[in-house]
Design a protein around this nucleic acid. Structure first.
Length: 748
RNA sequence: UCGGGCGUCGUCUAACGGCAGGACAGGAGAUUUUGAUUCUCCUUAUCGAGGUUCGAAUCCUUGCGCCCGAACCA
């Protein structure tokens, strides 16, 4: 499995023995709909990570809203996760299984004055909450006593109050810039029957309370969720801390999956199901796991897809073509090839005797290492596909046309002699001759027959129902310009009849085939014994169709309009920065940084006071110290201005190159002592001796003869790489400027 | 900008500060009893402007753009 930022983070946590080196993840769907391919990404990530690090992944039904949840969904979720190939073992949990504990924690929060019962109605509450840019104001019920809150909360539970009359709220901060922290509701009254707890409760916890507590209750180490929960993380941490949970789970967010030509929210999918735009959650056009399964996708293909799309934080919309690619790749290796004719056109082989012969036809092409074959009956009346005949074909059409030859797959080469038409002038049959020398499709005389087409014997043809599926939406991003339901593809399902070879009579539900030249198909559950129904999983790539439709095809996707280069408005330097600039003789950029980052200013002034070289110290402080502080999520540098002064002196007097200076800075952050100490410990005296450097440069050049050629060919970046190599050769001690100059001279 | 997140080929995703790589899509060709598969080759990217550095996609400043957040949903 390729790595990603989450796996990197977990690997670090395991190495540093966080949580005792254990890894426990969870997949927490709400049973209010079916799982879709977007969930598959999360499932593959959570279960995959657990497996890779020798940990566990729990399956947890996040069922805290009795109004929308249903046991049917619970069963479907388990079926789909299992089908995808993942096993939660004993670890199936329900948020509803924690209602007692959650209630107890809520009372604890009340006792520690971190929660209160609020009687504001929904409208008032939203008014009190303020807006994104204005702070909210405290609820008039915020200062109720512990006793009163406890009493009220218990009466909420006892069913003494109407639905909506009050809620339990966390007492955090109504002025927080993070709206999630403005005293969020954590319990509401709902007189609804819960599918698991029945009528035991009339108050239910909300997501922000239940979810973040379920995690530590189960010993979850890494709580992976999608980006829209990012601002909830602060609340997540607050609740765990406020509840004084003995276990702390860490939430990390990644980007959810979007697919072109697809809608991916449960709300929209539910709308499609309830509005009968599709035939249910498992309609093969749906991006649900159940739909994809019925469409003929394999779990392997879906997992491969999830592996290929990666995990990152960028908002991303994956091309549907990638999903089609992985399923073709998978199906190519596992589907038997059979012959089927979509639009039957009768061929009469006039010179063929009145008989039936059988051809031995392998199920697999040569490059798929599988065994098996069937026999194919052949006689003088056959069906071929109407698309494989043209009365006036262009030169590059190498199928059948008047006077032209074509190979019938596994059978004979035939030649079109004449076309039979009815009174309306429509073609009713093609009269052909066959070449008896070409039995099995070979041409002993060595002549080229470029076209090979599929066919079915009229007498034995099976007439079957086939469902041709296509993308559900016609636009890449349905719903972006108008209501997504107005952008549905009217041809997303075309139910047709096909003539297929007789061996398919006993195909059973779930069998997969490739209908040669047409696509991959699976036998649908609607099949009856002896009369299979096929779903097209995906068509074959068809470069002929692509070529012929080129003229009508939309122009290749326009490249993204580059953001217009606007005249850069010089941003005025704040007064404090101007003062600093004048006072310390530093650059405007540095002054700006120091004016904004007090700890950098303090550090720099400390360095100045200790006699540090001001230019170097300023650059170091603003560019490198600040970067390091941020990367390590610190408040400030863990060393004094004096240490910075010392370092800048070492650089200033040539003891250290600026590169070494930065390395030393890293060690200072690691707490390995002062600059001089580190230099001594590591023996970091910079190498400036010309002959020593030349020897190293020569060695690097000798070992990378091709690099020199590439540099001369115009790749200027090679120089950087060679400098890097020479630096490594010197153990980081060479003066990079000297190395670079020498290299330039030698390469010129 | 009230807070947060994110900007790398058309798309998705890599690159301890050291030759911007891979996959899909697109194009050209070879092989082919599936115009499939397979195999070769090619096109295309670091949001802009400054700064630090021998060297910046990466560090700093700044501008721009996109996304998320004001359910008693999850």
């Amino acid at each position: 499995m390729a790595s990603d930022f989450i796996r990197d983070m977990i690997a670090t946590d395991v190495e540093t023995r966080k949580h005792d080196g254990k890894v426990c993840t969870r997949f927490p769907p709400e049973p209010n709909g079916y799982l879709h391919i977007g969930h598959a990404k999360s499932i593959c990530l959570n279960f995959g990570v657990a497996k890779e690090f020798g940990g566990k992944c729990h399956l947890r039904m996040d069922d805290t809203n009795p109004a929308t949840e249903d046991p049917e969904y619970v069963a479907a979720i388990q079926r789909d996760v299992k089908w995808l190939g993942f096993d939660w073992g004993e670890n199936l949990f329900y948020a509803s299984g924690y209602y007692d504990q959650l209630y107890a924690i809520a009372e604890r929060l009340i006792r520690s004055e971190r929660a209160y019962v609020c009687d504001l109605n929904e409208e008032q509450m939203s008014e009190y909450r303020g807006t994104l840019s204005e702070p909210g104001k405290n609820s008039p019920f915020r200062e109720r006593s512990v006793e009163q809150n406890l009493d009220l909360f218990r009466r909420m539970r006892a069913g003494e109050f109407k639905e909506g009359s009050c809620v339990l709220r966390a007492k955090i901060d109504m002025a927080s810039p993070n709206m999630k922290l403005r005293d969020p509701a954590i319990y509401r009254i709902k007189y609804a029957h819960h599918y698991r707890t029945g009528d035991a409760w009339c108050i239910y916890p909300l997501y922000d309370f239940a979810h973040c507590l379920s995690d530590p209750m189960e010993g979850i180490t890494h709580s992976l969720c999608t980006m829209e929960f990012e601002s909830a993380r602060e609340l997540y941490d607050w609740v765990i801390a406020a509840a004084e949970m003995p276990w702390v789970s860490r939430q990390t967010e990644f980007a959810r999956l979007n697919l072109t030509y697809t809608v991916m929210s449960k709300r929209k999918l539910l709308e499609l199901v309830e509005g009968k735009f599709v035939k249910g959650w498992d309609d093969p056009r749906m991006p649900t796991i159940a739909g994809l399964r019925r469409r003929g996708y394999t779990a392997e293909a879906i997992r491969a897809f999830c592996g290929r799309i990666g995990v990152a934080k960028n908002l991303s919309t994956v091309d549907l073509a990638l999903l089609e690619f992985v399923v073709r790749e998978d199906l190519n290796a596992r589907s038997r090839r059979v012959l089927a004719v979509h639009k039957p056109l009768k061929v009469i082989v006039d010179n063929y005797p009145n008989q039936t012969e059988e051809f031995h036809a392998p199920y697999w092409p040569e490059d798929v290492p599988n065994e098996g074959s069937r026999s194919l009956p052949f006689s003088r009346e056959l069906y071929i596909d109407a698309d494989d005949f043209m009365e006036t074909p262009p030169n590059d059409f190498y199928r059948l046309g008047p006077g032209r030859e074509v190979r019938l797959r596994h059978a004979y080469v035939i030649k079109c002699e004449r076309v039979a038409k009815n009174a309306q002038g429509e073609i009713v049959a093609i009269h052909c001759s066959y070449d008896p020398q070409t039995r099995g499709g070979v041409t002993p005389d060595g002549r080229k027959v470029p076209g090979t087409i599929q066919w079915v014997n009229v007498a034995d043809a099976l007439d079957v129902e086939v469902r041709l599926y296509d993308r559900l939406f016609v636009t890449e991003r349905p719903g972006e310009a108008r209501d997504f339901k107005e952008e549905m593809n009217p041809k997303s399902l075309m139910t047709v009849r096909m003539k297929v070879e007789p061996s398919l009579k006993n195909a059973t539900i779930g069998d997969r085939f490739q209908f040669e030249r047409l696509g991959f198909f699976i036998v649908d559950a609607d099949s009856q014994p002896g009369s299979p129904v096929f779903n097209r999983t995906v068509s074959l790539k068809d470069s002929w169709a692509k070529q012929t439709s080129k003229s009508v095809q939309v122009s290749p996707r326009a490249s993204k309009p580059k953001t217009e280069v606007k005249a850069t408005v010089a941003v005025e330097l704040p007064v404090e920065a101007q003062e600093l600039m004048a006072r310390h003789g530093i650059s405007s950029e540095e002054a700006r940084t120091m004016a904004a980052e007090t700890h950098i200013l303090v550090l720099f002034e400390g360095a100045l006071a200790s006699g540090g070289a001001s230019k170097i110290a300023a650059a170091l402080a603003c560019n490198d110290v600040l970067g390091e502080v941020r990367a390590r999520k610190l408040e400030g540098a863990p060393f004094s201005g004096k240490a910075l002064a010392e370092l800048s002196q070492l650089i200033g007097d040539g003891t250290l190159s600026s590169k070494q200076g930065k390395d030393v800075l890293g060690k200072m952050f690691d707490g390995e002592g002062g600059p001089k100490e580190i230099v001594k410990k590591l023996g970091l005296q910079q190498i400036t001796d010309a002959s020593t450097i030349e020897a190293m440069v020569d060695r690097v050049l000798a070992a990378n003869a091709d690099a020199a050629a590439r540099f001369r060919a115009g790749n200027a970046n090679v120089l950087g790489a060679l400098v890097g190599l020479a630096m490594k050769e010197s153990g980081g001690k060479a003066n990079p400027k000297l190395v670079s100059d020498l290299l330039k001279k030698k390469l010129a």
